[in-house]
Amino acid sequence: MKKNFNKNEYLHGLKRGYPIALGYIPVSFTFGLMAASGGLPVWMAVFISFTNLTSAGQFAGTNLILSGAGYLEITLTTFIINIRYMLMSLSLTQRFDKAMPLSKRMIIAYGITDEIFSVASMERGILTYSFLLGLITGPVFGWTTGTFLGALICTSLPEGFSSAMGIALYAMFIAIILPPAKNSKPVMIIVILSVAITCIIKYVPLFNGMSSGFRTIIATIIGAGIGAYLFPIKEEKDNSKQKGEEA
């Protein structure tokens, strides 16, 4: 159905990805700052951002590298934090252009981050390779550029400013979920539910020591699981209409 590469779709993807790219700069800047002040060379900090392209996982992994942890601990911690991507990938596959070959799916897989996934999910209709590639381009650029700048300027920044930037990532998350939650009661209830479960796991002593990655997986499965039971989405033949329906 679709040709190999569609320039308009790519540009549309770029447009949707550019706010993510800008939002990534302060966060990855903080990462570069952390990596370089811990003793990693600038190129290596950038290399981490380019190959990992993830927030929580690479922050945790790099922290462990800097503290001299073993390979197993580093690998396992990063993996556990990143298991959540399986849910996102699985969710996205349902929206992919059916004609997309495996090789292209494997390229897109590299770019599935919390934010790219969220923006792709909110997009109506079938997700094409060109659109997704465009969506990923800006954020990859923003994430690596921010890391580079942060690692480069690591010593010359007022401390208060780097601490204030810690909130950037979370503010972006709020900006992604609040507008749809405001307009849809099921979404609002599911968000509140998963936050409540996260808090229970975090503060009830019984679950002490559970990693933040597992916390998110459990809260997501329970929250979205109950949500899907209470508010099933009406069957709709046309994929493009499915999104707008409950919004």
């Binding site: 969710s91 709020i174 479960i197 809260a219 929250g223 979205a224």
Partner: peptide, 16 residues
């Protein structure tokens, strides 16, 4: 439906 609600649950849990 579950997969449709996943992003909201994930982001809520990551944020708060």
């Amino acid at each position: 439906s579950f997969l449709h609600y996943v992003p909201f649950a994930v982001l809520g849990s990551l944020t708060f």
